[in-house]
Simulated scan of single mutants.
Amino acid sequence: MLFNTPMQKATLIKRYKRFLADVTLADGSETTIYCANTGAMTGCGNPGDTIFYSTSDNKKRKYQYTWEFTLTPEKYLICVNTAKANSLVSEAIKKEQIPELIGYQKCTAEVKYGEENSRIDFLLSDQNKVDCYVEVKSCTLLDERTQAGDGYFPDAVTTRGQKHLRELIEMKQQGFRSVLLFAVLHSGIKKVQPADFIDKKYTALFEQAKKEGVEVICYFPDLSRYITA
């Protein structure tokens, strides 16, 4: 199971210290829950938003509840738990729900590769095909100032993301297939582009990667099927 279900609703009071958030539960009481997201989370959690949380049965955890989704006043559903992006993509690859990645016999996660000591999210292999390196990035930044449905990555400067683009370029130059896959975890996002207004270096590397033949894929999972509360 990707999520502990059924999830419960709460109202967000505030997020702080990156990994923590205070919420008001359905019974009116207040508590602190865990937030598995190191990013800026722009537009993904404003005070007063409805959030959905899961409950852990691990008694050793300090915080029993984990913030999984936000439902905005505009009725956008957002998966804020970025740790779930790879699980969603793994499930989709195995169920052949991503047409560009169909036809590989083996899917291996977290494989060491590259000159910069990286780990690729998924290495797809088949005896009849060249290996395919798939790097997954979760996209939740919606900015509709130019056009409705515009999504951007990253939502903060990412030296790690820059490194991953360099590694994908290297793999492509070595003759392998390289894929940058955006897992779109915001129901309002219809397309994804690099956030030049946030990280110009990442954008430059993104454009270089495309010229080198690195493929860019967007995967739009149906987030609503995970909400049962």
Rank of each mutant, 00 (worst) to 15 (best):
T159Y: 11
P47V: 01
K129G: 00
I102N: 05
Q208N: 13
G149I: 12
E30S: 11
C107Q: 13
D121Q: 09
A204D: 13
A36R: 15
I120A: 00
G39I: 03
S56M: 09
R61D: 03
F176L: 02
L185C: 06
Q147W: 06
E207Y: 13
Y16V: 05
G161K: 01
K60M: 10
P47E: 04
S56Q: 11
T31V: 10
T24I: 12
V214G: 02
K59D: 09
V136E: 02
L223Q: 14
K60F: 05
F122L: 04
I227T: 05
Y113F: 15
K190C: 01
C79F: 05
F220Q: 10
D196M: 10
L123G: 05
E212L: 00
L142Q: 08
I78K: 13
E135S: 12
V23L: 02
S29H: 12
L12S: 12
L2Q: 07
D155W: 01
T203W: 08
Q147M: 10
N46L: 06
F52L: 08
I198D: 06
Y133G: 03
C132Y: 04
G175L: 01
K14Q: 14
L101S: 06
T11A: 01
Q208S: 03
K211P: 03
D222Y: 06
N117A: 05
C35S: 05
D22T: 10
N81H: 06
V216Y: 00
E116L: 07
E215V: 11
A195E: 02
Y226L: 07
T228F: 02
T32D: 08
G149D: 09
A183P: 00
S187W: 05
T31Q: 12
G213I: 08
K14L: 11
T32K: 07
K9A: 07
